[in-house]
Write a protein that binds this DNA or RNA. Structure first.
Length: 570
RNA sequence: GGACCUGUGGUGCAGCUCGGAGUGCACGCCGCCCUGUCAAGGCGGAGGUCGCGGGUUCAAAUCCCGUCAGGUCCGCCA
């Protein structure tokens, strides 16, 4: 039907009579004797010269038969890859007509996202999504190749799985053959891949669909894709190496840059320096700990377990209104308040300045090498809260868009095993209940569980969590101790994870794994700051598909077949 | 569950603070003209429940309340 993609046509084709197919991108008519038609296919645009008038409109699908000709002198178009040539003596065959499209398909106008989503099939025709999805395909292919090269085997796992309550809210699928019973869609293939380890596939990976019924965000969709992997007889460092090599290879392909060695820092260090477990290392504004200097303070506002400060270069100019906004943000994040100090040539300028003693003034005025013109923000509270609040302000004050270079990868290690206590007084797992405690901390499980570190690790890129993983527990004695710490009785464990624990009784190899979000990785590589731009058919923040109208009700007959009945809204 | 931003011909915007006729700009669409344009150009034209509902007012796109949709964020995401 066609002899070439239009983007491949250059001067080496001159003289050949060829067929090309595509959409009418634009037309320029010059009376009854001459017209130009810009033909677009996925590779680019080619100008076709028609002697006479045109009977095609924008977005008609046509097949053009014409002769590749060098453009007349003075009519070259340097902005077009094919701008040195054109098709002449054209014959047009209309393959499909088109109504005027609801929004321009060029990249010049930014179109309202809901309009784009309603006509996603047209949006897909535009350069942005064409580029993003092709980039995504090459990243995925690179990851697959990198995993295969490391002797990982791709295995598919079920989408219809058994409910295992806890963790993310699951999407539920009613069973027709077992009325009143349900499958769930996997939030991740976690348990399946551990069973594959028991099954002797000592290096598994999968480009896996994961589904979580949680509220959507710029970096979160109901359905997303992970590179999921698991390996036996390996250490945490082995896993980090596998992943680093695959991600680095994808980065080289996608960005043309070698990312080098990935940084590593412990969770405790990340919280202290950046106030978050997903530090953005692209800019400074690191938090400082002034707890020591304020240990005996008379100032009520600073009498707290921790006093943390953030130096804002040049921030002394901030208006009172801006400071109030920052204070309001700090309060919404749980801080009791936000203290601020302008650094001037003769001391600190702040409502609180006159209450400080000399040591305190000196430590504030010199924090992080402060100079006159800077602003010091201070939050005093529990260590974690003070850190998190300032960490959030740090992002407000300095964070570039996630996709803006440079790319800063960092492994965050030694996460806490438990992140607190629930209403019933039971510890809450920070990762999942199969995560191995840090070998040095096993003795703390019963005595000081909140200090137990785990063998869990995250990979972070530009402040976005790409993924996480852990060494898993393969010994039932340790698993029992963890379950009991989490308040999971043996009976409960049996009913929820029985098939996994049962499998472990038949010879479970030590194993560890990881999973990271391909959508997020590709978004950052593609230079966009939300993952909808790298997904062909995404949903809105309220979980609606504006093109298909999903979610929708289903016919009464289907409801009956599934033994489902709607209940009144309560 | 909550906070904030946005909603004006098909598209992108301005108008909203200080109420006074649906006023304006660019693109697109329709018609006519035009033999080298390429975001072609010229002339003419059509196209609007100002998201929706209520209130205040002599008068509402504009002020107030509610609601819906889209977005960003908090909660949530083992």
């Amino acid at each position: 039907m066609r002899d070439a993609l239009v983007g491949s046509i250059d001067e080496s084709w001159v003289g050949r009579r060829i067929n090309v197919c595509g959409w009418v991108a634009r037309r320029r008519e010059h009376g009854e004797h001459l017209a130009f038609l810009d033909l677009r296919d996925r590779s680019g645009i080619l100008q076709c010269v028609v002697e006479g008038t045109l009977d095609v409109r924008s977005e008609y699908v046509v097949r053009v038969t014409g002769t590749v000709t060098r453009r007349p002198e003075g009519t070259l178009n340097l902005r077009l890859a094919t701008g040195a040539v054109e098709l002449t003596e054209c014959e047009l065959e209309i393959l499909s007509v088109a109504e005027p499209v609801p929004f321009p398909l060029d990249e010049r106008t930014e179109v309202d996202e809901s309009t784009r989503l309603r006509y996603r099939f047209l949006d897909l025709r535009r350069e942005g999504l064409q580029r993003a999805l092709r980039l995504r395909a090459s990243v995925t292919a690179t990851l697959r190749a990198a995993m295969s090269a490391q002797e990982f085997v791709e295995v598919e796992t079920p989408l219809l799985w058994a409910p295992t309550p806890e963790g993310a809210r699951e999407f539920v699928v009613p069973s027709r053959l077992h009325a009143g019973e349900f499958y769930v869609l996997p939030q991740s293939p976690q348990i399946a891949k551990q069973l594959l380890m028991v099954g002797g596939f000592d290096r598994y990976f999968q480009v896996a669909r994961c589904l979580r019924d949680e509220d959507l965000r710029a970096d979160r969709q109901f359905e997303f894709t992970q590179l999921d992997l698991e390996a036996s007889f390996v250490t945490q460092e082995d896993i980090m190496g596998f992943v680093s090599r695959a991600v680095a290879e994808a980065a080289r392909v996608a960005t043309g840059e070698d990312p080098g060695e990935f940084a590593t820092m412990t969770w405790a260090e990340a919280l202290d320096r950046f106030g978050t477990d997903k530090p953005d290392l692209r800019f400074g504004l690191e938090l400082r700990n002034l707890t020591e200097s304020f240990s005996g303070t008379e100032v009520k506002a600073f009498q707290a377990p921790a006093v943390k400060a953030l130096r804002v270069p040049g921030g002394a100019e901030f208006s009172r209104a801006r400071l109030d906004t920052l204070t309001e943000q700090a309060r919404q994040l749980g801080a009791k308040g936000l203290a601020w100090f302008r650094v001037t040539s003769d001391g600190l300028d702040s409502p609180l300045a006159r209450f400080l003693n000399e040591t305190e003034t000196a430590s504030l005025a010199g924090v992080d090498g402060a100079v006159p013109g800077d602003l010091i923000l201070v939050v005093a509270d529990e260590f974690a809260l003070a850190s998190r609040v300032l960490g959030a302000l740090r992002l407000t004050l300095g964070a570039p868009p996630v996709s803006e270079g440079p790319y800063k990868y960092v492994w965050v290690t030694e996460f806490p095993m438990f992140e607190g206590v629930d209403e019933d007084g039971h510890l809450v797992a920070a990762h999942h209940p199969f995560t191995m405690p840090h070998p040095d901390d096993l003795d703390l499980i019963d005595t000081d569980p909140l200090r137990v570190r785990s063998a869990a690790y995250d990979l972070v890129l530009n402040g976005w969590e790409l993924g996480s993983g852990s060494v898993r527990i393969h010994r039932s004695d340790i698993q029992s101790r963890i379950f009991s710490a989490l308040g999971i009785t043996p009976e409960e464990a049996e009913s929820r994870f029985g098939f996994l624990l049962g499998a472990f009784r038949y010879g479970a190899p030590p194993h560890a794994g990881f999973a990271f979000g391909i959508d997020r990785l590709v978004a950052i590589f593609a230079g966009v700051d939300n993952i909808r731009e790298v997904i062909a058919f995404p949903k809105t923040q309220s979980g609606a598909d504006l093109m298909t109208g999903a979610p929708k009700s289903i016919p009464e007959r289907q409801m009956r077949e599934l033994r489902l009945r709607p209940v009144a809204k309560g």
